[in-house]
Amino acid sequence: MIVTLIIICEVGFWVLLAAGLALRYLAKKPRVGAAVLLLEPLLEVVLLVVTTIDLKNGAEPDWKHGLAAIYIGFTVGYGHYTIKRIDAWVAHRFAGGPPPVKPPRYGMARARYEGRLWLRTVVAAAVAATLLQLAIWYVGDASGTESLTGWQFTALRAAGIHGVIALTYLLWPKKAPPEDGPTRVEQTRVEPTRVERPPSVTKR
């Protein structure tokens, strides 16, 4: 049931996102669209409540509960970021808004961008690890908490790996390629000089 609910939450996320943006930009109802987008966090609340009830009813903690915590953490860390980027694209595509700002590609600007993404991963891992720890305390000495502990290490390991990747952009910033000069020298076509002949003299 937990896995099915995770799938439903993921599908519901994109359905609500599409509906909210359609109402905002296509139907010209920005307030209604914003209200629909505000329903997004309710999906994670429902998943959290159902997972808690499942544990309360005596279900043995396993990978499904850990996956639910990871999903909620990821949504907290990246949900708003995803909505904001897609909103900017739809506004540009259908409402004449400015083009979405592309992520920087080179130098320290790219390093800062990667660092901000890593902070989102840290938030996601922290939320997931906290929920898992609460579940461990809630279950108590019941068997199966080792699975939840394993998911905690999975979340922290993902944040650590992402941190190492982000650090490489700081230590070895990607350099912009040199501006390309002209690939070939345009040859000027010289038109042949036209020499006019003097008018002929007619002999009388």
Rank of each mutant, 00 (worst) to 15 (best):
M1G: 08
V3K: 09
V3E: 10
T4A: 11
I7V: 14
I8P: 00
E10V: 15
V11G: 07
F13M: 02
A19Y: 03
G20L: 02
A22G: 06
L23G: 02
Y25W: 08
L26A: 04
A27E: 10
K29C: 01
P30K: 08
R31Q: 11
V32T: 15
V32G: 00
G33D: 04
G33V: 02
A34E: 14
A34P: 02
A35H: 08
V36K: 01
V36D: 01
V36R: 00
L37D: 02
L38E: 14
L38F: 13
E40Q: 15
P41A: 08
V50L: 12
V50D: 09
T52F: 13
T52I: 12
K56A: 12
K56S: 12
P61D: 05
D62R: 10
W63M: 08
W63K: 05
H65W: 06
G66H: 01
A68R: 02
A68C: 07
A69Q: 07
I70D: 01
I72S: 02
F74P: 01
V76P: 03
V76N: 04
G77L: 00
G79P: 08
H80I: 09
Y81V: 11
I83L: 01
K84S: 12
K84I: 00
K84R: 15
R85L: 01
R85H: 10
I86E: 02
D87Y: 05
A88C: 04
H92M: 04
R93Q: 09
R93E: 05
G97S: 07
P98I: 05
P98F: 04
P99C: 00
G107Y: 10
M108L: 11
M108K: 12
Y113C: 05
E114K: 15
G115A: 09
R116A: 04
W118H: 15
W118Y: 11
L119C: 06
L119E: 08
A124T: 07
A125V: 05
A126H: 03
A128Q: 02
A129F: 10
T130G: 09
Q133L: 11
A135V: 01
I136G: 03
Y138T: 07
V139P: 01
V139W: 00
D141Q: 14
A142I: 07
S143V: 09
G144S: 00
T145Q: 04
T145Y: 03
T145M: 01
L148T: 02
T149V: 10
T149G: 13
T149C: 00
A155D: 11
A155Y: 02
L156E: 05
A159E: 10
A159Q: 08
A159D: 06
G160L: 14
I161R: 14
G163Y: 08
L167K: 01
Y169K: 09
L171I: 13
L171M: 14
P177L: 09
P177M: 09
P177F: 08
E179Y: 07
P182S: 11
R189K: 13
V190W: 10
E191W: 14
T193N: 10
R197L: 10
R197P: 07
P199Q: 12
P199G: 06
S200P: 15
S200E: 15
T202P: 06
T202E: 15
R204W: 15
